[in-house]
């Protein structure tokens, strides 16, 4: 079986989105999505880890017998995460401070183990990299949308603290959409994260219900997942 690239992307972004359909990696997804920039930053870090670990697993797939598969995945993923963490600490300190413990926690993101097991260990290098990119982008997209909506309803802003990611030039990128004094505690606290994710999942289901053609296809892929 050789999946088409187009199909890999459709799976990652929509039909089998790790955040909205597979509901994997909820720990970092819910904990870090307090602002757009945090979401974007963790999303980029997750994409980097996913692509690297998928590529490594795919290259080594001939050597990885079933009995040593899981320990090998764990070594590969832990190494990749440590590489990303050390790189952030050394050259992007502000960002590394903002993301705090959540970069090392990418190691617990089951999306990465799931893609290694379900995809990369059975596919050649190029589709595996594509899958890492697609699934990572799908996860990052959910992180950004969640982060943006929680930031908007919690603080009334978008893109606050962009300078942590893009340097001092981005310090004035903040968009104040609601009055300066706006504050909604619920959106910032963990329950807000669960509620927002629930609404996003519901929105996706509703959109599927709206488009009859999509409904059939999505039904198939969900049954397969």
């Amino acid at each position: 079986m050789k999946p088409e690239h187009q199909d890999i992307w459709r799976q990652g972004l929509w039909q089998a989105n790790p955040g909205l359909v597979q509901l994997l990696g909820l720990c970092p997804l819910l904990a870090v999505s307090t602002s757009t920039i945090n979401g974007l930053a963790l999303g980029l870090a997750t994409i980097a880890v996913l692509v690297c670990s998928n590529a490594a697993v795919s290259v080594l797939r001939g050597q990885l017998r079933p009995e040593i598969r899981i320990p090998a995945f764990v070594i590969i993923i832990a190494t990749t995460v440590t590489v990303v963490d050390l790189t952030l600490q050394a050259w992007f300190h502000d960002l590394s401070r903002a993301l705090g413990i959540f970069v090392p926690l990418i190691v617990t993101n089951c999306t990465i183990l799931a893609r290694a097991e379900a995809f990369a260990s059975r596919q050649p290098l190029v589709p595996a990299i594509h899958d890492g990119l697609a699934q990572g982008t799908g996860f990052a997209a959910v992180l950004i949308v969640l982060g943006a909506s929680r930031e908007l309803f919690g603080h009334g802003t978008l893109l606050a603290d962009a300078d942590r990611l893009f340097g001092p030039a981005a310090a004035d990128w903040t968009i104040q959409l609601l009055p300066e004094s706006w504050e909604m505690l619920l959106a910032i606290l963990p329950p807000g994260a669960f509620i927002a994710l629930g609404l996003l999942v519901a929105l996706r289901q509703w959109l599927i219900g709206q488009t009859g053609a999509l409904r059939a296809r999505a039904g198939q892929s969900e049954a397969a997942a």
Binding site: I68, I75, L86
Partner: peptide, 30 residues
């Protein structure tokens, strides 16, 4: 299987040791 796992572990250790060599100083400086 043992050989493959050992090799993987050694490769991971080598990668991390190299990276640590380069990031140690910037991290301490920061």
């Amino acid at each position: 299987a043992i050989l493959v796992l050992t090799g993987l572990g050694l490769a991971a250790a080598a990668i991390l040791a190299t990276l640590d060599h380069f990031t140690h100083e910037p991290i301490a400086l920061e």
